[in-house]
Design a protein around this nucleic acid. Sequence first.
DNA 1: ATTACTACCTGACAGC
DNA 2: TGCTGTCAGGTAGTAA
Length: 271
Amino acid sequence: MPELPEVETIKRDLEKSLSGAILKKIISYNARFLEKNNLSLQELRFLEGETLKSLLRKGKFLALIFTEQALVLHLGLTGALILNSENSSSIFSSHDLFALIFDRGTLIFRDTRKFGKVFLIAMDKLSTFLNRLGIDALEITFEEFKKSLQGQRGRIKELFLNQRIIAGLGNIYTDELLFRTKISPFRRGIELSEEELLRLYQEMQSLLAEAIALRGSSIRDYVDSEGKKGRFQERHLVYGKAGTPCPFCQTTLKRTIIAQRGTTYCPNCQK
DNA sequence: ATTACTACCTGACAGC
DNA sequence: TGCTGTCAGGTAGTAA
């Protein structure tokens, strides 16, 4: 579910409300979920008593940084981090997997489909761990962007979905980006011109900035740490709109499958 | 190197 | 009212 703009929204909110907070206690509601992540409650409990020093996002991963270790989270398709504090509280859900009780509020990891992930990583291994990802889409320079895509034989849609190439875009933002730049999802990285790469790079920056400003896209499940929806879905031009007219040329938007993911595009505008 | 398929899970929705 | 199939902001592993 959450792609870069959604994770960034959560990160900024939690930075405000929880950085410097003391983790008092961890509760697991689903032992099987921790097992699947090769974690035990015992190991997690080493974090109890520690201070949350900062938060770090790379791609769709969010790391809660403690003194010696980081708790690294990935929200999968339906994950959410819900913060219950004086200002807000949510009702217990059967999909709550675990909770971090801080002195300033309780953070619940909730995930209907349980595709989310948790890792406990020693701080000296964190950068190695995150190096499995390509450069973050908000951080990448044009030169690095070019280098990442040029020479790749794969179709541009799959290149953006592959987090080892550039980290952060998922199915929604890739379809929106390709539509806005009028580039066909079938094009290969290797055949993109300098001008097209620059267009992709610039539009990627403005798309992500706009989406973050509107606190992400809520299609089905996504909510922020206060349980509120984002508003960027109102600006979507193609995602989930197959069969309706292209907003530029009125041609019927088409749906296809690329990299096993539903892909919506305009067969007339996108070259 | 690239591509396809499967698995992991639950829920919503369409069609019969 | 069911039942069945399809689809969903993701990623890892395995096989051709």
